[in-house]
């Protein structure tokens, strides 16, 4: 998949993974992995970007005698998800145009 496209999709996927309840890094990876390939080294910069953009907040919770960071979606993050859904409708209509054109050419 195109790198830029994947990067954008991953951001939204991470937001979707923490939409319903707060989650932590490893859990986010496990939730997203069935749909799109993600690793620690890709997740880390995405989380930091989303945090800078105030799409999520971070808090440390004690777990088995160590700290674990939980990520919670903010209103901005929810808005970003909604925007993406709207945008995707436009993209789908473009997709239909592209796919249709291909069929004509064949």
């Amino acid at each position: 998949m195109d790198i830029q496209l994947k990067r954008g999709l991953l951001e939204v996927c991470v937001l979707a993974a923490i939409r319903d309840e707060d989650s932590y890094g490893y859990q986010i990876i496990k939730d997203i992995k069935p749909y799109i390939d993600i690793s620690e080294s890709t997740l880390y910069p995405i989380l930091r970007r989303l945090e800078t953009a105030e799409c999520l907040t971070v808090r440390s919770v004690e777990h088995n005698g160590r700290l674990r960071k939980y990520y919670r979606i903010t209103q901005t993050g929810i808005q970003k998800l909604e925007d993406f859904k709207l945008e995707w409708k436009e993209i789908m209509s473009v997709y239909q145009f592209i796919a249709g054109e291909d069929q004509v050419n064949e």
């Binding site: 890094g25 490893y26 880390y44 700290l67 674990r68 960071k69």
Partner: peptide, 14 residues
């Protein structure tokens, strides 16, 4: 520090 913390947590979770 943030990077090291992140990877440390990842390893512990695994």
């Amino acid at each position: 520090e943030k990077s090291v913390e992140f990877y440390s947590e990842m390893l512990d979770d695994r």
